[in-house]
Design a protein around this nucleic acid. Structure first.
Lengths: 237, 237
DNA sequence: ATGAAGCCTGATGTACACATCATCACGTCG
DNA sequence: CGACGTGATGATGTGTACATCAGGCTTCAT
């Protein structure tokens, strides 16, 4: 809900609520790739009819998270790291635009949230948990987007982020060295946040964008390597 | 329709047809800003019920071209050059990515299309027509997007393009120096196409992106100046 | 026993009746 | 005479029955 926007009907609010709920479930793998969602079940859960649910599903389909097939069902799309290379490449380029295009210096409240995330990250090092890590990553992303005042850039980055974020949980869950990978990712993430907060505190938002860019690219490279164990070829980004 | 995609049902095809038809009408000002669309009229025109129409309208609303208000109607959004500054700024940055990210060298067929557009542009110089100019601009845009093989970049650029393209027709139609502005824009557009084709023929896709970037920025500046006649401040891009 | 044809089930897609909401015109009251 | 309240009207939002479609299971013929 954007500030300053007309409160509007509560119908819109319910629509947004269902949308965010389903999107989170898909991206946290509560709805794993390939799972079939029944519109009537969702309608029952949200105490409504199929009609509003279908609008949400249509949007999630436009965004590439779902695929409705007549006579079959509404299916959570599967993702492969190879198919996401283009999206990652674009995310890498866009990361640099934060802090360069319409830079928006964070206020005290936002800095407090950054520190809160860092604290939760330290907690996570002691008790690693993939799902909590994914959530933390998500919240950090939303905080990071506020580095720019450019609304379309925020919206587009969000769209691309949610197209890719599942791949980490999916890849990790299949791996033998699951625990090691998780702990490593948490440490890397901790360093990324620390560095970005440091850059912001210096007032150097451009640097924050560059750090973010590097980490997105490296994250892709690690996922690519994990999915291609004997791959002689390096990650294409 | 992406190549290699399952042909799918004809229901999907009809959905796409309605979507593209309405989007073109909005962007060519057949449906001017503020106009109210009646879902039943549209349903009757496309020989279907309100349900499929509503799905199209929902998508156009997500893309910012429409706004549905309960009890009032579905209204074509109004646009002001000042509100589009952020979108233009992002388009400027994205333009540079074409030809740099996943460059896709045009084949003979595409070069033929470029030359066809140039020929139609020369024709347009002799018989200026705002609507035809807008159409030509649109077709050129689609051709230009093929400079990259990065599908998400294409999709996002298209979304942003259709959010902004109406502003030219709207601004021009209100201006006293309408004829002069139109002819000038056509000449500028002719030069832009000529330069970009030249860059492509040199195999320098990066240059094509830079030219495009410059022209998007200048186009915004001209529109901004036209909308702020006594504006002491320069265009913010 | 095996293969194919056809039905049966359950899903999404469509159509339509109804609910809800905003606007405007009209009438009534101060 | 003006202003406020109320109902008519027409729009979108919702709920639901039905149409359409795909896939699996059964059944019959070979």
């Amino acid at each position: 809900m954007r500030a300053g926007e007309t409160a509007g009907s509560e119908a819109r609010a319910r629509y947004e609520r269902i949308y965010h709920t389903l999107r989170d479930r898909i991206c946290l793998l509560d709805y794993p790739p390939g799972m079939r969602l029944r519109e009537e079940d969702l309608a029952a859960e949200f105490a409504t009819s199929r009609t509003p649910v279908r609008r949400v599903l249509a949007r999630l389909e436009d965004e590439g998270l779902l695929r409705s097939v007549h006579g079959v069902g509404t299916i959570v799309t599967d993702i492969e790291i190879d198919d996401l290379q283009q999206v990652y490449q674009l995310r890498v380029e866009l990361a640099e635009l934060f802090g360069r295009v319409a830079p928006n210096v964070p206020g005290p409240e936002e800095m407090r949230q950054y520190r809160s995330l860092l604290a939760r990250c330290e907690e996570l090092v002691r008790k690693p948990d993939a799902r909590e890590f994914a959530r933390l990553n998500m919240e950090f992303f939303h905080l990071f987007t506020q580095l720019t005042a450019n609304e379309p850039l925020r919206a587009i980055s969000e769209r691309l982020y949610y197209q890719t974020t599942r791949i980490w949980l999916k890849t990790a869950s299949r791996l033998a060295a699951y625990e090691d990978m998780l702990l490593n990712e948490i440490h890397v993430f901790q360093r990324e946040m620390t560095d970005i907060v440091a850059a912001i505190e210096c007032g150097n938002l451009l640097a924050a964008g560059h750090i973010r860019r590097a980490h997105i690219a490296m994250s892709f490279a690690r996922l690519y390597a994990a999915a291609h164990p004997e791959g002689a070829s390096a990650a294409p980004i």
